[in-house]
């Protein structure tokens, strides 16, 4: 198992008022994302535990791209990963933000 952690500045606070949501499941090629509104509005954090070691650069790029697109200010994302592909990771992160902002994806 490998642990990764990324912190970013986010220009905007994530909308809505839900405290937390969870999406996904930990299975081969899949992951769960727990999003919690626990940080200052201008910050976000992604905490990852993954079964697939040695993909730090890809995670960094996926997370950076996600933060830039969605600006999830105030959210902490905790991920348990069963070895998902980058597109699945991006999808789950987007679902988590949409869910906590109150939209259905």
């Amino acid at each position: 198992m490998e642990t990764l952690n990324y912190r970013h500045k986010a220009p905007q606070r994530a909308k809505g008022s839900k405290r937390q949501v969870i999406v996904g499941v930990v299975a081969s090629g899949n992951l769960e994302v727990l999003a919690e509104r626990v940080l200052p509005d201008s910050e976000c954090e992604v905490d990852i535990r993954t079964a697939a070691e040695g993909f730090g650069e890809i995670w960094q790029a996926v997370v950076a791209d996600f933060v830039e697109r969605r600006s999830p200010g105030g959210l902490k994302f905790s991920i348990n990963d069963g070895g998902a592909r980058p597109d699945t990771v991006a999808l789950r992160l987007a679902q988590a933000v949409s869910a906590i902002e109150g939209e259905r994806t």
């Binding site: 198992m1 969870i22 769960e32 727990l34 919690e36």
Partner: peptide
């Protein structure tokens, strides 16, 4: 004891397996 409590298996790490929050 929802996932935010992170009460994960204390035993899966021994097998290097990923946990799930619930």
């Amino acid at each position: 004891i929802g996932p935010e409590w992170r009460e994960t298996s204390p035993h899966l790490p021994l097998f290097d397996l990923p946990e799930q929050f619930d």
